[in-house]
């Protein structure tokens, strides 16, 4: 039981990884739109303090909403390289007062400030995306898009079919690579389970994956037609309704971002492209 895959209980019940967090009860369209607005607002500050404060608040809120540490850690780990790269390039490409020399390149004070700021912003936006992705229920998202974003019945059905395909992609990718590895001539692989990683074989595997998936798509489209998709006005079994909670979520998220920015500005810590002369 200990090693059951994340998101599904050991007996494979539909467990609603999505129903575990408080965020999952909110309307998915509102959640996505709020995320978009917040990350647009985050384009303004370039200092490290704003994203750092918001990152701390995000992690605290996520924990309060029962998002597991493992989800957060996985997010942080995958954004590490990006953050480091953003930091590295900004350290040495921004004009400003030199503070150090590394391998013939000049590190400037503006570079340190902006680089740390942008790196932290990457981590913050990534963490927000991970928290949201972990609480999105695809069926509710599509039902909500259908109701609030004028997505048609056929478009909604197509999106859900694509979600099924996406769900199967990782397993299918492994299956195709195993199947193709079995075609290799020569001695047994030295390490059992090691799949070949030559670019040639990876490209062939990707192509086969694409063909197999497109064939499945065509069959799914026929299935949807024979289930009456688009044959007239449809009903919705689990309707998406906007509630007060959705307004609170949007107001709190956007409000917090603005307030943090305003406070730091009063403290003289907020920097923008204009103030750093970038």
């Amino acid at each position: 039981m200990s090693a059951a895959p994340a998101g599904a209980s050991p007996d494979g019940r539909a467990a609603p990884r999505a129903r575990r967090t408080a965020l999952a009860r909110r309307d998915p369209t509102v959640v996505l739109a709020t995320l978009l607005v917040v990350s647009l607002l985050l384009l303004v500050p370039v200092d490290p303090w704003t994203p750092l404060t918001l990152l701390v608040l995000t992690v605290a809120a996520a924990r309060a909403a029962a998002v597991p540490w493992s989800t957060l850690a996985r997010g942080l780990a995958s954004f590490g390289p990006f953050a480091l790269s953003v930091l590295a390039v900004n350290l040495v490409t921004r004009p400003g007062a030199p503070v150090a020399r590394v391998a013939g390149l000049t590190v400037t004070d503006v570079g340190v400030l902006v680089g740390t700021g942008l790196a932290l912003r990457t981590v913050l936006v990534g963490t927000l995306a991970v928290v949201v992705a972990a609480s999105l229920d695809p069926v509710r998202l599509v039902a909500s898009l259908h109701r609030h974003a004028r997505l048609g019945a056929r478009g909604a059905a197509a999106l859900l079919a694509a979600h099924r395909v996406l769900e199967q992609l990782p397993a299918r990718w492994v299956a195709v690579r195993q199947a193709q590895a079995a075609r290799l001539p020569g001695p047994r692989p030295t390490r059992a389970g090691a799949l070949p990683t030559s670019p040639d074989l990876l490209v062939r595997a990707a192509f086969t994956l694409l063909v197999v998936t497109l064939r499945q798509a065509q069959q799914m489209a026929v299935t949807l037609e024979t289930r009456g998709v688009g044959s007239g006005p449809r009903t919705v079994h689990r309707p998406a309704r906007l509630g007060a909670g959705d307004a609170v979520l949007a107001a709190v998220a956007v409000g917090t971002t603005v307030v943090v920015g305003a406070v730091l500005w009063r403290l003289g810590l907020l920097e923008t492209w204009a103030s750093v002369g970038g």
């Binding site: 995320l35 995958s78 995306a129 949201v132 992705a133």
Partner: peptide, 9 residues
């Protein structure tokens, strides 16, 4: 939305 890209929304 589904793969949590680090680039964000």
């Amino acid at each position: 939305a589904f793969l949590a890209s680090p680039v964000g929304p």
